[in-house]
C-alpha cells in the first residue's frame, strides 16, 4: 500500500508563505481562497509572537489538509464525493460534490474552502498546472496533495518551492523513506491529535 504524506520541520519553516502562493498558483485557486495557509501560533499578525516582551516565542505553522487516515470530512459527506484514494490521499470528486458543506463543518483543521460564487481569478485566466481540473461555483475544494503532480512522480508544488527545505514528501508505508524515518523520531507533533482524525501530515518541532 501507499500512504503519501508531508512532514514539515517547524524549526526550518520561517513562515515565508512561499508554499502558500505556490499552492495557489499550481492549483488555480481563486481569490479569497487558499488551500494552504501559514498561521502564526496564537498571534493575529504574521510576524507576531506568544508571551510578553522579552519572554516571547514564535511558531509558524503551514496548514493545509492533513490527509487524515480517519478523515472526519469523509464520514459526513452524503454523496461520497470526498474519498480516501489508494495512494492514501483524501480527494474530492467535484462532480459528486453538492455543496452541502458538511465536510467543512466536520474538518477540525478548517482547511476546506467553498466556491460561493463563480471563481474570481486575478489574473483573469486559468493559471497553474493544465492538468488540474477547474472547479465551479457550488463545490468544496482543498489541498489534493498536488494529485496531478504526485500521480506522475513529481513532488507537491509546496515542497518543490519551499526555500528552506522545511518540507519532506514521501510514502509512510515505505519504511526506508526519509519521511518514515522522520515519523519515528520523538519530536513529532500531530495537530489536534485528540480529535482522532489521525493526520498523515505531521510536524517536527
Amino acid at each position: 500500500m501507499t500512504k503519501l504524506a508531508i512532514a514539515i520541520n517547524l524549526h526550518r519553516c520561517t513562515g515565508c508563505h512561499t508554499c502558500v502562493n505556490a499552492c495557489k498558483m499550481q492549483n488555480n485557486v481563486p481569490m479569497g481562497m487558499l488551500w494552504n495557509r501559514v498561521i502564526t501560533e496564537n498571534s493575529a499578525v504574521s510576524d507576531g509572537v506568544e508571551g510578553t516582551y522579552p519572554n516571547i516565542s514564535r511558531t509558524t505553522i503551514p496548514l493545509a489538509c492533513q490527509h487524515c487516515e480517519n478523515p472526519a470530512c469523509q464520514k459526513v459527506c452524503p454523496t461520497g464525493a470526498t474519498y480516501k484514494d489508494d495512494m492514501g490521499r483524501v480527494e474530492i470528486d467535484y462532480d459528486k460534490c453538492i455543496g452541502c458543506r458538511m465536510c467543512m463543518a466536520a474538518c477540525p483543521y478548517n482547511v476546506r474552502v467553498f466556491n460561493w460564487n463563480e471563481p474570481d481569478r486575478d489574473p483573469g485566466f486559468n493559471y497553474g498546472d493544465a492538468r488540474v481540473p477547474v472547479r465551479s461555483k457550488g463545490v468544496v475544494e482543498k489541498c489534493t496533495l498536488c494529485k496531478e503532480r504526485t500521480d506522475n512522480g513529481q513532488v507537491p508544488m509546496c515542497v518543490e518551492c519551499c526555500p528552506m527545505e522545511a518540507r519532506v514528501y514521501g510514502d509512510l508505508d515505505d519504511p526506508n523513506s526519509e519521511i518514515s524515518k522522520l515519523r519515528a523520531k520523538n519530536n513529532v507533533r500531530i495537530l489536534l491529535e485528540d480529535m482522532g482524525t489521525k493526520p498523515q501530515v505531521f510536524y517536527l518541532e
Binding site: 479569497g32 487558499l34 460564487n117 486575478d122 483573469g124
Partner: peptide
C-alpha cells in the same frame, strides 16, 4: 482574508 473578495476581476484589463 482577501481584499478583492467579491469583486469580479474577470475583465481584469
Amino acid at each position: 482574508m482577501s481584499g478583492t473578495e467579491g469583486i469580479s476581476r474577470r475583465g481584469f484589463l
